[in-house]
């Protein structure tokens, strides 16, 4: 019993030491914690009027609050918006779209016929620059669809090159699932949206 008691006492001493060591907030004088580091965590965002001052408060009356923190730097002007091209708009094409199966990027039989038409045009117009847009339907994760759209566009480009088109005149861009041709939410719409779209530059 006596031994247990003194052991507990030792724990108490240790605890108090831990409290002191940790700077436990309760009974300390007021000191500012939040002032430095404008742009630090936990503040309201731009235009930020400055960080929130924060200090431990104790039970007895205390001295006045710490001085106001330094004002935040003036917000920089926002980055300029893009000029001109509305990338969100469907760009008209004289060629049909090449369509794909769900989660696939192989050029199907119907797509090969379209690619032949495109390749014939490019042979007759050797200076034409063609961009191939890859698109996906709305199902699945946007990031995965971005990469899938790129793979579809690349598959069409590879096929056009195999038909004799010059790679130097071709480029690709993926829009993932962001630019559906048909805004519907059924297989009919999805089938139209899984596509490669040709745009002459």
């Amino acid at each position: 019993m006596k031994g247990t008691f003194s052991w507990k006492w030792a724990v108490l001493v240790l605890s108090v030491a831990a409290m002191v060591g940790l700077g436990c907030a309760k009974k300390q004088t007021v000191k500012s914690e939040g002032a430095p580091g404008a742009g630090g965590p936990g503040e309201v965002s731009a235009p930020a009027p400055g960080p929130v001052g924060e200090a431990p408060a104790k039970e007895a009356p205390v001295a006045p609050a710490p001085p106001a923190p330094a004002p935040a730097p003036a917000p920089a002007p926002p980055a300029a918006a893009a000029p001109g091209i509305a990338v969100t708009e469907e760009r008209l094409s004289q060629f049909d779209d090449v369509r794909f199966d769900f989660d696939k990027s192989e050029v199907r039989e119907d797509g090969r016929k379209t690619c032949q038409v495109v390749a014939d045009y490019l042979r007759k117009n050797p200076k034409a620059k063609l961009q191939i847009e890859g698109h996906c339907d709305e199902r699945g994760t946007a990031e995965y669809n971005l990469a899938l759209g790129e793979r579809r566009a690349a598959a069409v480009m590879t096929y056009l090159v195999s038909l004799g088109a010059s790679k130097a005149n071709l480029s690709t861009v993926s829009f993932g699932k962001e630019k559906p041709l048909d805004p519907g939410h059924d297989e009919g719409a999805w089938a139209k949206n899984r596509r490669a779209h040709f745009v002459l530059k």
């Binding site: 939040g34 009027p49 001052g53 200090a55 039970e59 609050a65 710490p66």
Partner: peptide, 16 residues
């Protein structure tokens, strides 16, 4: 008392 804090800021920072 378990914890006490004093905060200073602007009225727009009240929620924060």
């Amino acid at each position: 008392l378990l914890v006490g804090k004093r905060y200073t800021g602007t009225p727009t920072q009240l929620r924060s």
